[in-house]
Design a protein around this nucleic acid. Structure first.
Lengths: 202, 202
DNA sequence: GCGGCAAGTTACCGGTCGGTAACATTCTTG
DNA sequence: CAAGAATGTTACCGACCGGTAACTTGCCGC
């Protein structure tokens, strides 16, 4: 149950040093994603960022708020990724979903992947009033909304059902990634998505 | 990022008092499942169990080992559940999977559910040498194996593909449960499973 | 009643947690 | 160069972390 120790984060003085706040934030994002939120303390973050605790508390009001920022960052990057993957197939929702799943599989199977940071946060953050909870909830709600919208656009027989099923496939992949090296069942996600869409006449 | 405080666990002296070890273990299981593993300290457990830290360390070698026991307990209960659900449809793998998903949906949608304790542990426990990791990995591997075996038994066109897809659906449901009150997309899992099996000619 | 054991009590250990005060240094910019 | 902002340093806070020692109390069967 050990936590990330302040000393062990590779090297404690990264070459570039733009504004401390950014260094701290980038470091925190990586550590939170790789080791989990609860496992990473302020000391570990500031040490890995080559700075000190005071500099941290001059830039962030609290750890919880930093966590919320981390999740907002993950959220916006996710939608950047989504829009980028979807863009080449404008107006062809079926191809958009296929592209999404293809990208999802290759992304999730890469060895650096630790699944979805926001999904992981859903596990770690239980307190209803944690500033990060709202970010997670709205993120996952938007995923559901978009999958359902895509299912509508491709004129599926039961779009809500199809949209939710596609979401389950994707989320399941995130979870599977955490136990299977290289992803395991994740590899089947694209074909499964195709099969579901076929069955819905889309 | 608050943790479960030793004081706030409803009442600190449960009526029945069979052997302390059991009281501690049951309490720990519930707290771990409800609040997460890292969020629950030894103090919180022993207080909620109406005992003290020394009694804990007389029964368990360490917290990590308790966590591993908790996961083993979840694992064996899961297979008890699985076998029970599957039993009435011996020899009819298609019906067995349907029964599994029906039970999975109703279980996961219940308001006490916090998804799959073992999947949650996969998120929280990152250390490769934690005694709980092996339990999680073997649990998820066995799920995959069984789904694939069921797909073979129902003579699916591509049994490995179908088995993995079914697993993704189920795992996705566990994750969705954590952000959507009452489960959200989980409700679509059964129909999605049926659709996939139909498409595989099973 | 007495021995033995299970359980409770109290105090303690070093270490880490998130967070802060006061002060010294360096960097940037006018 | 000087002023002011940004950053670093050190020490500290109370609380909690997982874990332990020494001793006392309660309960059981013989």
């Amino acid at each position: 149950m050990s936590v990330v120790r302040p000393e062990d984060s590779s090297l404690c003085e990264p070459a570039a040093k733009p504004r401390v706040r950014d260094r701290i934030f980038d470091t925190a994002c990586e550590l939170f994603y790789r080791h989990g939120i609860r496992a990473v303390g302020i000391d570990a973050i500031v040490c890995a960022a080559g700075t000190n605790k005071m500099s941290f508390y001059r830039s962030f009001p609290s750890k919880d708020e930093l966590v919320a920022d981390y999740l907002r960052h993950k959220d916006s990057h996710f939608w950047l990724w989504w829009d980028e993957v979807v863009a080449p197939h404008q107006g062809r929702p079926r191809q958009q979903v296929e592209a999404l799943f293809e990208a999802h599989v290759s992304k999730t199977c890469s060895k650096e992947s630790r699944g979805c940071g926001l999904a992981n946060a859903a596990v770690e953050i239980v307190e209803e009033d944690h500033p990060g909870r709202a970010v997670v909830v709205s993120h996952k709600s938007e995923i559901r909304r978009r999958f359902r919208a895509l299912a509508v656009a491709m004129m599926a027989r039961d779009p809500e059902q199809l949209g939710d099923a596609l979401m389950l496939l994707m989320e399941g992949g995130y979870l599977a990634r955490l136990t299977f090296p290289k992803g395991g069942p994740v590899a089947s996600a694209l074909i499964a998505a195709r099969t579901l869409m076929d069955a819905h006449g889309a």
